[in-house]
Simulated assay, not measured.
Amino acid sequence: MQPSRRPQEDPAGDVVRWAAFSCLLVPVVLVVYGTSFGGAAVATLGLAAVTAACRVLLRHSEQTERTGRNAARVLAEDRLTPAHRGRHSRSGAGTQRGCQVSGGMSPHD
């Protein structure tokens, strides 16, 4: 039997889970090493606030990244489609700017 894997990796979720674990572990270690319960509680609240702020920032970053990927995909699709050349576009051989092919002399000669 193979170990089950999550269908989609979530690195931000992993970071938040480890931070939450630390929020629980740090006060225990502080109390074991002689810090008062009040001091451990303050440390727990501080860590929880930092963890919550980091979670919000990570989720915002993920949304921005997804939006950026979607915009990049749309731009890539636009590049693949033929663009409208505007009202001054010309088609045909020899009609590029500066390349006038004329059989006779121009009026300015």
Rank of each mutant, 00 (worst) to 15 (best):
Q63L: 06
T95W: 03
A40I: 14
T35Y: 08
Q100W: 15
E77T: 07
A20N: 04
T51S: 01
L58D: 02
G34Y: 01
R6K: 15
E9M: 10
S36F: 03
A72P: 00
A19E: 11
L57R: 12
V56H: 11
V56E: 09
P107A: 09
G46D: 03
D10F: 01
V15L: 05
G92V: 04
V101R: 10
H88I: 06
Q63Y: 05
D10M: 02
A76E: 15
L58K: 02
A76Y: 12
Q8P: 04
L25A: 15
A40W: 14
R85V: 08
C54K: 02
S22H: 10
W18R: 14
P82W: 05
T51M: 01
R59L: 06
M1A: 08
S91A: 09
R5M: 11
L75Q: 08
A52R: 02
R73S: 14
M105W: 09
S91L: 09
G38A: 12
A40C: 09
G34R: 00
A19R: 03
P3L: 09
F21V: 14
T81R: 15
T64C: 05
R66C: 04
D14K: 04
G46F: 03
V56R: 08
W18F: 15
G98F: 00
T67A: 15
L25R: 12
G86I: 01
A41E: 07
S102K: 11
P27C: 06
R85S: 07
D10W: 05
R87C: 06
H108Y: 09
H60M: 09
L45S: 04
V56T: 10
A40H: 07
E77P: 02
G103A: 14
V29M: 14
G104I: 06
D109F: 08
A93V: 13
L75P: 00
G39T: 11
R79Q: 11
V31M: 11
A12I: 00
V101L: 12
T64R: 12
V50M: 08
R73Y: 15
V16W: 02
L45W: 01
A53K: 04
Y33G: 07
G34E: 01
P7M: 09
V31I: 13
V16T: 06
R97L: 14
A43T: 05
H108L: 11
V42S: 02
Q2W: 08
G98E: 02
F21D: 11
V74A: 14
P82I: 07
V32R: 10
V16E: 01
H84A: 14
A76G: 07
A41I: 02
G86E: 00
G46R: 03
Q63N: 09
S91M: 06
C23W: 01
S102G: 06
R90C: 06
M105V: 13
L45K: 04
A52Q: 03
R17V: 05
A52K: 04
T67N: 09
G92F: 04
G86R: 10
F21I: 09
R90N: 05
E65K: 15
R55L: 02
E65C: 11
R79V: 10
G38M: 03
C23N: 06
R79Y: 11
T51I: 00
L57P: 01
E65Q: 15
G86M: 03
A20M: 05
H84Y: 13
S106N: 08
V28A: 12
R97S: 05
